[in-house]
């Protein structure tokens, strides 16, 4: 699997294909929804990690991975794939260690979507829109 660090934020070939496959309204709607999904899943993951809720954390990472890759947000999707692998192995230290990279990738995707990024407090445990 490609290293997420080397991956582009967005695979434009996927975006170009979706532009052909979806009507204009759905194309805009699905990208706005991805922005909401990124914010929502990161907030969900942050809360789950703070409460040691492994099931919710795994599901949040898994959902974000699928949503990102479906829309060609390759760097975020691949990073989630890596963290999902860590989570399934019970390696929560690596998941927590990847948090800052995950936030940065999420912010890059939001910027590519034309949405304002997220702000996080110092301990990365609270997500603010």
């Amino acid at each position: 699997m490609q290293d997420w660090r080397q991956a582009p934020v967005v695979d434009t070939s996927v975006t170009d294909q979706l532009r052909q496959d979806l009507d204009e309204a759905d194309f805009a709607l699905v990208h706005d929804a991805l922005a909401d999904d990124i914010r929502g899943r990161l907030a969900e993951l942050s809360g789950a990690l703070a409460q040691d809720d492994g099931d919710t954390a795994r599901r949040a990472i898994h959902s974000l991975k699928g949503a990102a890759l479906n829309l060609g947000h390759l760097r975020l999707g691949l990073l989630c794939g890596h963290l999902n692998h860590c989570a399934l192995a019970g390696d929560w230290d690596s998941v927590r260690g990847g948090w800052d990279d995950l936030v940065a990738s999420g912010q890059s995707s939001l910027a590519a979507l034309g949405h304002a990024g997220l702000a996080f407090d110092g301990d990365s445990s609270i997500v603010r829109a």
Binding site: D21, D23, D26, V30, A33, D36, D37, A67, L71
Partner: peptide
């Protein structure tokens, strides 16, 4: 689909 972007994407593709 529990993820809204994926739900909208699949629905849009199927309509298409």
């Amino acid at each position: 689909e529990d993820t809204s972007s994926s739900r909208i994407l699949v629905s849009g593709l199927v309509r298409g």
